[in-house]
Nucleic acid binder design. Sequence first.
DNA 1: TATAAAAACGATCATACGTTCGTTTCTAGA
DNA 2: TCTAGAAACGAACGTATGATCGTTTTTATA
Lengths: 198, 198
Amino acid sequence: MSRTIGSSGAKTLAAIREAGLQLIYKDGYEAMSLRQLAAKVGLQPGSLYNHIATKQDLLFDLIHNHMVTLLERVNAELDGIDDPLTALSVFTAFHLTYHIERKREVFIGSAELRSLEPKNRKRIVNLRRTYENLLCDILEKGAAKKQFKIGDARVSAYAILAMLTGICTWYDPKGRIDRNALIDVHTRLVLHGVMKSG
Amino acid sequence: MSRTIGSSGAKTLAAIREAGLQLIYKDGYEAMSLRQLAAKVGLQPGSLYNHIATKQDLLFDLIHNHMVTLLERVNAELDGIDDPLTALSVFTAFHLTYHIERKREVFIGSAELRSLEPKNRKRIVNLRRTYENLLCDILEKGAAKKQFKIGDARVSAYAILAMLTGICTWYDPKGRIDRNALIDVHTRLVLHGVMKSG
DNA sequence: TATAAAAACGATCATACGTTCGTTTCTAGA
DNA sequence: TCTAGAAACGAACGTATGATCGTTTTTATA
């Protein structure tokens, strides 16, 4: 028995994950070859299989890990908040912050859904649905309390999520736009968009 | 000399385009093999090359054709409209309508940008930038006239476009949601989102 | 109807892919 | 220090890919 604690295996796996994230984000899952991936990590292609089961497993692992983290964090953020308006504001800020920080995972999580095997895809779609439902609930509560005026809650939720998630395709943290300014612009669009008055 | 008018070649090319659209939309460009494509059209793989130059050319052709049409139509829609509020409303309705009608092309046009060779990608990105600028201009004019209150115009434009384009990933014309209801919900979100009052 | 071009066939090319496997090297716990 | 297991090598597997090419069939015009 050996190499359980502090083994370099964990580091290698982490390096594979990071390299995979970069390559899939840049070129897409299908376009990334395991030879590319291995070269980026500094391994022979076959050696990858000491750490991952299949290419598909790596993709699922990356997306699943991201979804679980997303749900954990959003639940922590929304915990104890009752007022729909406050909740919507918190949700918006959280969603943007998280999506800026992990934009590669987020992008892969939606762009490469199609590359997941049906069974894996279903698991991810379920987690995503759970997340969407959080926003749906907020909107419905706000509409019930007459704070919001929206049409169909699910349609509105999809529209808002699409808007907020869109930054993953273009936002550059080192670019012209300040992060807080980004959050302000979006928060305004969302809140004014759903508010009853206006 | 023969087979110039009414030749069956044009029909075959159209069939290849349509089949390509379906397959790329469903599985992605990289995942679509020319054998799949040929089978769907009812040809041997090699016969495709009587109609297309390369697989890459087919992808570019599909996306480019879509972008050119998009620009033609939006210009026709906005022609002669001066008031920013009216323009924004028209733009929103047009964008949604077009994106519902050609959701496969639109989806491919953004999801498969990465699959285009650099030179091809640049041409598409330029066309897209032209389209984005139309919305940017509307927002800036509205802000200058104090009709709108927005932050950065380009950020707002990206946010709105992301929201409206998002329907391509989930909207089903045969589904629960009526098309007009969809347009209403989104128009409300956009207009209220940018309006000064609120 | 004769003919030249268009379009399909179908075999084949070279290459790249994900994955496997026997072997060797390294490393950390006993 | 010894040793078992982890992790790397590197050659190889079978398969699928995009693309080519000489040949045959179909088509519409002249």
